[in-house]
Amino acid sequence: MAKDPKPVDPDKMSRRAQFVETYRMAKKSDSRLNLWILGSLLVGGVIGFVVFWILPGEGVLGIVLSVIGALLVGTMLAMIVFGRRAQRAAYAQMEGQPGAAAAALRMLRRGWKSDPVIAFTKQQDVVHRVIGPPGIVLVGEGNPHRLRQLMTAERRKHERVASEVPIHEVVCGNGEGQVPLSKLVKHVQKLGRSVKPAEMTDILNRLKALDANRSSIPLPKGPVPTSMKGMRGQMRGR
């Protein structure tokens, strides 16, 4: 019996391979993706042609500039629309799946460190950790009542080793006071800038001692898109 091919690490994929994988992922849950891309390409092309047509230039030069402008603006708009639709499709596939918040947090840019599942319950309520400009961010997903006790315990543990570092608590979900999965990354990024890049190393070193006492915690299983990390650029519409 043939074995399933081993998944390729998104970080080791070429740009072209990442783009193709992102398109396939988005197309599964967005049947109108091609129409949106084609429509944005045409609209952007018309806008680019008109803008470059009114610029100084006559005859052949004016036509050439207009065509180039149409291609540039059309392609740029199509890529932006594709990125937004792909992002929406990815979140739709992850919604409600165990570990969805951890997958979304992988899209954070450089300067952030994400540690999935630093604490959990038997019912698969989990707490993830992000370290970045706001300080330490504890992100919980699961039952809010069980998470309250779990996150309080994690806050106390972190305060023992990094008492002067700001600690934020975020619960990912669709309930009152929770942050929806699609807005999680932006919410975390807007928590402020209390920690300088030079201080990150010191914080990470302090947390090593805390993490060394933890048992190995596996990420909850679920059909979470594995391409999220390697395709951050396309997902942001860039």
Rank of each mutant, 00 (worst) to 15 (best):
residue 157 K to P: 02
residue 113 K to A: 13
residue 145 H to A: 15
residue 3 K to G: 07
residue 52 F to T: 00
residue 133 P to W: 01
residue 149 Q to L: 10
residue 171 V to H: 01
residue 151 M to A: 02
residue 15 R to E: 15
residue 60 V to N: 14
residue 33 L to V: 08
residue 198 A to W: 08
residue 111 G to Q: 10
residue 186 K to S: 14
residue 45 G to W: 03
residue 192 G to D: 01
residue 50 V to W: 12
residue 22 T to P: 06
residue 16 R to Y: 12
residue 27 K to F: 01
residue 71 L to V: 15
residue 88 R to G: 08
residue 185 V to T: 08
residue 109 R to S: 15
residue 28 K to S: 14
residue 121 T to V: 02
residue 44 G to A: 06
residue 91 Y to N: 08
residue 211 D to G: 00
residue 47 I to S: 05
residue 121 T to F: 06
residue 25 M to D: 03
residue 122 K to I: 12
residue 175 G to L: 01
residue 151 M to I: 09
residue 142 G to D: 02
residue 2 A to S: 14
residue 8 V to K: 15
residue 163 S to H: 10
residue 9 D to L: 03
residue 215 S to W: 02
residue 33 L to Q: 10
residue 54 I to C: 15
residue 197 P to C: 04
residue 67 V to T: 10
residue 83 G to T: 03
residue 75 T to Y: 13
residue 174 N to E: 11
residue 22 T to Q: 11
residue 237 G to K: 09
residue 144 P to T: 12
residue 46 V to D: 04
residue 11 D to K: 15
residue 78 A to F: 05
residue 100 A to I: 06
residue 91 Y to R: 07
residue 52 F to H: 00
residue 7 P to R: 11
residue 211 D to F: 08
residue 188 V to I: 07
residue 191 L to E: 06
residue 27 K to L: 09
residue 225 P to C: 06
residue 210 L to W: 04
residue 34 N to Q: 13
residue 101 A to K: 09
residue 198 A to M: 03
residue 230 G to P: 05
residue 35 L to Q: 10
